[in-house]
Write a protein that binds this DNA or RNA. Structure first.
Lengths: 337, 337
DNA sequence: ACTTGGCACTCAGGACGGGGGAGTGCCAGG
DNA sequence: CCTGGCACTCCCCCGTCCTGAGTGCCAAGT
């Protein structure tokens, strides 16, 4: 059904279309790539490819354009991941190495990805749940209000205000701080919920209502409210691709943190680079875009995901290479700090 | 030179053009607004207005379009600020009141502004330099590395890692923490630099090199590196206005924090709503956009600025009203927390 | 069973060419 | 100073034509 030449034709169509943005016809195909057969032969192959749903023609008497299915076949079987040259790798590394805190790492990563791929870059903040607590700080703000600051071993700092049911004395705060740090330091955040459950008995009875308020905020922050932020960059690159009328929808989708989270999260394998093409995205406004994502993290386990988003007509090998390389180096940076 | 009717004509032209996005002619003017004179009279007025540079016609035998100068006159003398109805105010208030921390306040503010004005919203994080230190925390991360966390009375939390020249003992950290909090708590950040200068003598000599490293990071963070972040939202609204080819440039400018800072910062009066129209923006890519900004802050002094950005063809009264109202309520929220 | 050249066919897109219409400037009269 | 009338100017829309790239099909060649 799909002999080698037909696959080669599909690959050629994808490559040409990606680089020229024009439907590609049989004649220009044989010219550009050195397939040593005649245009007529190619036409027959293209007819088959079209029948199978890998390509379409926008209108009669026009060249062919890959379908989502065609791109899918392309990334799955026809294209590798373009590896990055040592020079490029060095550039990535030095660019990221200059960062001085987590926010900065994330910002730099977004910029870097956007610039490397000339697409929209999307980076999720390292997840809380996989990391461990390094320190908890409590600061009185007002009479019945505290500021709770949580520092994780990935360098992330979470802050939350707590409204207390009653007054609280300074030494009670000191006690509470000691208890919290004694019991929670070094705990994986995933385990915190259960650890917190046994805390109340360590607090002197009169302070328990206040302590309970603090505890519930901790649990809420870390476990239930899984509000990973997602940072987007390079939106200007969207104007290069012509989404005709859809650009508005794409931009809208990019502003919905929830939507982005879903897109990033729905990938199977954490370590591998995964590609979601066009209609494979369930999000309505992104039916004509593709996402290339992968997990990243300090060490082995993935803490979060990052990737790029662009038109389905995208240079997948390069995008995949960039995403993979950047993820790797961000992981290194995070592991070091 | 500019009698009342001519001003009325200019106002009418601006209003019509803003709402229809089409060059407005003499006839449609007298129809829509009840100027009780004939089209010919209006034509004469328009000729004068054109001569003075307030309006132009895109081509002969077309209606007139306001120039930047025209809009300028409009906002300065012809339009007030559209006040918001009590219902709208309540909506703003309740929307913002749900926020649980500073990040959330800023995010909500951006969304709110974008939605109210259907333009791009721009919100600067509350400035550090105007606020005071509420607490400083030091947490050992590794052998020769500390995490420094600064909490300000505006609820902002700054974090920075410090690389130390030498080892540091736990009790030295405790001492350092005590010294810092004793001397800096409640200080305005603007005064911190001088306060820090006298700190070294309070530290026991052997620890001074390490302490110095910490102090220099503090000063650097708070004073020299004035890295106020700017958050942008509602970029999708740009697609409604037709920037033909310039949309790319606008999006690019919006991704440059530095550019945004300059735009927000360059305003004179902190409290008033200021408008910068088209070519009044020195930034290259934003020559066809206008910005409406104002300062906001807890209490009287402005901590930072916020505003909206859109095409020069913008509903200025509404935009100004929205910016003013939102700034006011954000200030309230900040003052409370 | 493929491949190839030939041939007729299709259609998007650019060039050309009128109207139609909205708008203007000017002028003479109120 | 305002007004109606009038001639004029272009943009824009619409229909027409034409060209060129590309296709599908077929009959002949390997």
């Amino acid at each position: 059904m799909l002999d080698d030449r037909k696959l080669a034709v599909l690959r050629a169509i994808v490559e040409d279309y990606v680089s020229t943005n024009e439907p590609v016809g049989s004649k220009s195909l044989v010219d550009r790539h050195n397939l040593d057969v005649s245009p007529a032969t190619i036409r027959n192959d293209m007819a088959v490819l079209e029948e199978l749903g890998y390509i379409v023609q926008p209108h009669t008497s026009a060249g062919r354009v890959p379908t989502d299915l065609g791109y899918r076949l392309f990334v799955d079987r026809l294209s590798g991941v373009r590896p990055f040259s040592p020079a490029e790798r060095r550039a990535i590394e030095t660019f990221l190495a200059g960062a001085y805190d987590l926010d900065d790492v994330v910002m730099r990563t977004v910029r870097l990805l956007a610039q490397l791929t000339r697409q929209v870059a999307v980076v999720q903040y390292p997840s809380l749940t996989r990391s461990a607590i390094r320190h908890i700080e409590i600061v009185p703000l007002a009479d019945r209000r505290l500021l709770l600051v949580l520092i994780t071993d990935t360098g992330r700092v979470e802050q939350r205000t707590v409204d207390l049911p009653g007054q609280i004395a300074d030494d009670a705060i000191t006690q509470l701080r000691a208890v919290l740090n004694a019991c929670l330091d070094g705990r994986k955040l995933a385990d915190v919920a259960s650890a917190v459950a046994e805390l109340p008995e360590r607090v002197s009875p009169p302070d328990r209502p206040n302590a309970a308020a603090v505890f519930s905020v901790i649990v809420e922050t870390l476990v239930e409210r899984n509000d990973e932020r997602v940072v987007v960059g390079g939106a200007a690159n969207l104007t290069a691709a012509d989404f005709s009328r859809g650009l508005h929808e794409v931009l809208e989708a990019l502003e919905e943190q929830v939507v982005l989270m879903r897109l990033l999260g729905e990938s199977g394998d954490q370590a591998a680079v995964t590609v979601r093409i066009g209609s494979e995205n369930e999000v309505h406004g992104l039916r004509s875009t593709s996402m290339v994502t992968t997990g990243y993290g300090a060490g082995e386990q993935a803490l979060a995901r990052l990737g790029v988003l662009g038109p389905t007509r995208m240079d997948y090998p390069t995008a995949m290479g960039a995403v993979r390389a950047v993820a790797r180096y961000v992981g290194q940076i995070l592991a070091e700090s």
